[in-house]
Amino acid sequence: MLAAIDTIAAPLVLAATTEDDGLNPLVRVVPGLMIWTLLAFVVALLVLRKYAWPQITRILDQRQQQIEESIDAADRTRQEADELLAEYRQRLTDARAQADEIVAKAERAGEVAEREGLDAAKVKREELLEQTRRDIQAETNRAIQEIRREVADLTVQATEKVTRKTLSPDDQKRLVEEALSELDFSTLSGDRRN
């Protein structure tokens, strides 16, 4: 590898040292070459300034504007996302509050329905008890009336058998009233009259 470098570098070193004054031609000052070099540089600079720099500046400005627009769009998107997140959180809070309110209303409605059901059951029970009392009282009165008729019939029959004669309707009535007055029907009807 060193041999390859030596073969390439040797002619360059030889060409640089073979000049008249022993200076390298790249380092030596040649006024004509220097003027043409400056003139070429100025022309290249003017051409670049006239045609290339406006294009490069325009492209760089466009790129800067695109970057700024991208940053603005990212900021707007982030702001919209923050607003949406805040709105979502607010809606979630509202939904939870509504759910809690619905549950509370349902519990209150359940309690009211239970209370109304109990009240209705109590009223129905009282009505049934009152109806049962009336039925018992009516049945008791009917039974007492039936017993009175039986007692009256038995009294009339017993009296007729004892006296061996038929009683007149007035005598029967008087006899039945006396027999009935001696019986205490209040104990049968549940009344405790003295």
Rank of each mutant, 00 (worst) to 15 (best):
S70T: 15
R115K: 04
K50S: 02
Q55V: 14
E80N: 10
A158S: 13
R49S: 08
Q64A: 15
D100L: 12
A86M: 05
E69M: 15
Q66I: 11
D82E: 08
E160C: 07
P169S: 12
A52I: 07
R108T: 08
Q137L: 09
P54T: 02
E150L: 13
E107P: 03
D135A: 09
R76G: 01
V162K: 15
R108L: 07
D119M: 13
I71T: 11
Q64G: 08
A86N: 03
Q98A: 11
E101R: 15
V42S: 05
K165N: 05
A109D: 04
A40W: 07
Q137P: 01
Q62W: 12
A81F: 12
L118H: 14
E101I: 06
Q131F: 00
R108E: 07
D100T: 11
A113Q: 05
R149P: 00
T132A: 13
A52Y: 07
P169L: 14
A106P: 02
R133N: 06
L129A: 06
Q157G: 06
G110E: 02
D135P: 02
P54V: 03
I59E: 05
K165R: 15
R63D: 07
Q62Y: 09
Y88L: 14
P54Q: 04
R49P: 00
A109I: 02
E68I: 13
A95I: 11
